[in-house]
Amino acid sequence: MHIRVLGSAAGGGFPQWNCNCSNCAAVRQGDPALTARTQSSIAVSRNGQDWLLVNASPDILAQVRAMPELQPARALRDSGIVAVLLMDAQIDHVTGLLMLRERRTALPLYATPQVLDELNTSLPLVRVLSHYAGVEAHLLSLTEPDFAVPGLEDIRFTVIPLSSNAPPFSPRRDAPLPGDNIGVVIEDIQSGQRLLYAPGLGRMEPAVAQAMATADVVLVDGTCWRNDEMQALGLSDKTAADMGHLAQSGPGGMIEVLAALPKRTRKILIHINNTNPILRSDSPERAALTAAGIEVAWDGMAITLGSSNG
């Protein structure tokens, strides 16, 4: 089973277009300790040719250009993207759907009823796409969480509800319902190896802890180093928790959570905000992660689990 990180940054990417924080300024100036990143998304395949996108970033066109496998050229008009799975309705996870509008057939789209409701009302992308090839909606259930995606045989997907927040444009902002945010366990059925993908994780709960404990790889929320990071820089009045993200440092933070996992577990942070000091490869914060056995995802990062064909 192949997993590819298409984008590793949080909303706005890195550098963010209008941000002059020390990280964004330095990466524009070519600081070798920093690497530009697109907004977070991953792709999953069994055979290396047919791929499921997990979230559709606004940067999808650049991500496709950077990954030739997503454009295998088997026909005059062709794509390796067989379907899209959405973790939430956040702008940085769904607006790439608009860039996939030229398909000849409806795009299979896997999402919870809450997310599809947002994409039909508050942010009506499904309605807009109906004027093109449209989408073929597949509803995800929290009560029957296992599902399969045609074209990705021998891979099992399992929905995990997450405590985070609904998008700012949602009527459920600051009062999210189960299903507004999910993670997914991706399992290679033949080997039994599993990856947990949870880019928006605001609070640890038993289902998440269980999924982490049984995963071979956890690819999880790395948005902020400190809970008050954005406030301390004068960039926002909201904490990481307010935005639906569990900070890395401090009691109960992501570092502490990941430290409790089995030593065999590979631990990787994704969805990294432009303000986060872990973006610098030479920062004390990055050194602390390395000492804790935690990696920082990067655009193009490849992960292989179990036996893969292709």
Score class of each variant (00 low, 15 high):
63 Q>V: 02
64 V>Y: 00
65 R>G: 00
65 R>V: 04
66 A>V: 00
67 M>I: 07
69 E>V: 08
70 L>Y: 05
71 Q>K: 10
71 Q>P: 00
72 P>W: 04
72 P>F: 06
72 P>L: 09
73 A>L: 07
74 R>A: 15
74 R>G: 10
74 R>T: 15
75 A>I: 01
76 L>K: 10
78 D>R: 02
79 S>W: 04
82 V>A: 13
82 V>L: 06
83 A>Y: 09
83 A>V: 10
83 A>T: 12
84 V>P: 02
84 V>F: 07
86 L>K: 03
89 A>S: 15
89 A>V: 09
90 Q>T: 01
90 Q>D: 13
92 D>C: 09
92 D>R: 06
93 H>F: 05
95 T>Y: 05
95 T>R: 15
96 G>F: 08
96 G>T: 12
97 L>M: 07
99 M>E: 14
101 R>T: 10
101 R>W: 06
101 R>E: 14
101 R>F: 02
104 R>I: 03
104 R>T: 11
105 T>A: 11
106 A>M: 11
106 A>W: 09
107 L>W: 00
109 L>P: 12
110 Y>H: 05
111 A>V: 11
112 T>Y: 02
112 T>A: 01
113 P>T: 02
114 Q>I: 01
114 Q>R: 15
115 V>L: 05
115 V>N: 04
117 D>F: 07
117 D>L: 10
117 D>W: 09
117 D>N: 08
118 E>W: 01
119 L>E: 05
119 L>G: 01
120 N>S: 11
120 N>A: 12
120 N>F: 00
122 S>N: 13
123 L>E: 07
123 L>A: 08
125 L>K: 04
128 V>F: 12
129 L>M: 15
129 L>F: 04
130 S>D: 13
132 Y>H: 12
135 V>M: 14
135 V>N: 09
136 E>N: 11
137 A>K: 13
138 H>Y: 12
138 H>C: 06
139 L>S: 10
141 S>R: 05
141 S>T: 13
143 T>C: 08
144 E>K: 12
144 E>Q: 14
145 P>D: 03
145 P>Q: 10
146 D>L: 08
146 D>F: 05
147 F>S: 02
147 F>G: 01
148 A>F: 11
148 A>R: 13
148 A>L: 14
149 V>W: 02
150 P>Q: 13
151 G>H: 12
151 G>V: 14
152 L>S: 06
152 L>C: 09
152 L>M: 07
153 E>A: 15
154 D>A: 15
155 I>G: 03
155 I>K: 03
156 R>F: 01
157 F>T: 04
158 T>S: 15
158 T>F: 00
159 V>K: 01
159 V>G: 01
160 I>H: 02
160 I>D: 01
160 I>R: 01
160 I>M: 03
161 P>A: 05
162 L>W: 00
162 L>E: 13
163 S>T: 12
163 S>E: 09
164 S>P: 10
165 N>Y: 03
167 P>W: 06
167 P>F: 07
168 P>T: 08
169 F>H: 12
172 R>D: 14
173 R>C: 00
173 R>W: 12
174 D>N: 14
174 D>S: 07
176 P>H: 11
177 L>F: 00
180 D>T: 10
180 D>S: 15
180 D>L: 04
183 G>V: 04
183 G>A: 09
184 V>T: 14
184 V>M: 06
184 V>N: 07
184 V>H: 05
185 V>Q: 08
185 V>C: 09
185 V>H: 04
